[in-house]
Simulated assay, not measured.
Amino acid sequence: MSNDTTLVLGATGNTGRRVAARLRLRDTHVRAASRSSRTPFDWFRPADWDQVLQGVTTAYVVPPAVPGPVHEFVARAQAAGVRRLVLLSGHGADDWGDSAFGLDMRSAEDAVRGSTLEWTVLRAANFAQNFVGPPFRAPLAAGELALPAGTVPEPFIDLEDVADVAAAVLSEPGRHAGRVYELTGPRGLTWAEAVELISRASGLPIAYRQVSPAEYTAALVQEGWSEDEAHLLTEMFVLLERGATAWTTDDVATVLGRAPRTFEDFVLRAVAAGAWLR
């Protein structure tokens, strides 16, 4: 077991907890950090960062939902002796143009890619597991998912594949330096096709309905989302409808030597866990 320490930010989140577990199985010394973990980390309390970074050689970075803080974090990491950064970002970020969506991820990429440290960026498509969490699970369980998404496909990526790739990259210094990996599933599905697969496998009557961006924003606000949060999620769907993220890649196979999991595989596991039972 190496004496090097790998810092995992967002360690109680979707990818962070999976990445930390995989690294521990590889006998990597992990410092798991989040606002609610034993090692506290808050993107808006930079005074505490130096202690978190002490003795760290590699860091897995899940950026905050606002642009800016990752720039200071990278500077602090470099000063603390960190040698490698692996950043989670979004699929096709180079093609997002003037979209209001993803400014946080693009800012984080600028910070990491502009540093003198060894870096790797993992750009993930929409997670398949988003269908079992907010804001999609409750409408699916109620029998209808209404989104501003039409016939443009999305190459949903399984979170388990994202975590497998992240753990591999974090464990292989030098091999992935300066690489940007676009992580997608093996094929694209429309959101309506994804809902149909969920309905068929679960045996539940679940329908998909396309709504306008304005209708979707209003529905989110009615559910309790803030105006800003609702607007940003709607902007993601507006961006997806441009086709900016519709393409697939072989990058999961490049890193892992195997194909990514299918959406059907995710659905079967979710149904077995009772994900959409009312």
Rank of each mutant, 00 (worst) to 15 (best):
S107C: 02
R179T: 13
G97P: 07
A146R: 12
R31A: 04
G185N: 06
L88T: 09
S36G: 12
A168S: 14
A275P: 09
L240D: 02
R38Q: 15
S202Q: 06
V56A: 04
T254W: 00
S34C: 07
D161S: 09
T234C: 09
G133E: 15
Q222L: 14
T15N: 13
D48I: 08
S199V: 08
T262M: 04
V19D: 05
V74T: 04
A32P: 11
T28M: 11
P205N: 07
V74P: 02
T245Y: 03
E72P: 08
G114V: 02
Q78M: 13
R18N: 11
A246R: 05
F131L: 14
A272Q: 13
A59P: 03
S226D: 07
V211Y: 01
P40T: 04
R38P: 13
A230G: 10
D98V: 13
S99V: 07
V195D: 04
A207M: 13
L232C: 01
G243M: 11
E193M: 06
E264K: 05
L122D: 10
A33S: 04
A77W: 00
D251T: 06
A149G: 00
R31L: 12
S36W: 13
V82T: 00
S36A: 12
D94L: 13
Q78G: 15
F237V: 07
V82E: 00
D4S: 14
W247C: 12
A111Y: 00
V165E: 00
T58G: 00
F127C: 04
V271K: 09
W225C: 10
A77N: 01
G10T: 11
P186A: 11
E223P: 06
A141W: 05
A108L: 08
W119H: 02
V62L: 10
E154F: 05
A111E: 03
A142Y: 02
I198S: 05
I198T: 10
P148M: 06
A244C: 12
V152R: 11
E118N: 01
T28L: 00
H176Y: 05
A93L: 11
N130S: 11
R38T: 15
V195L: 03
G97R: 15
T12G: 09
P63E: 00
E182Q: 14
P40A: 08
D161A: 11
V70W: 02
D98M: 09
W49Q: 01
R26F: 12
R22Y: 01
S226Y: 01
P155H: 09
V30F: 02
R123N: 10
V62Q: 08
P186F: 07
A230S: 07
S226K: 02
G81S: 09
A219D: 12
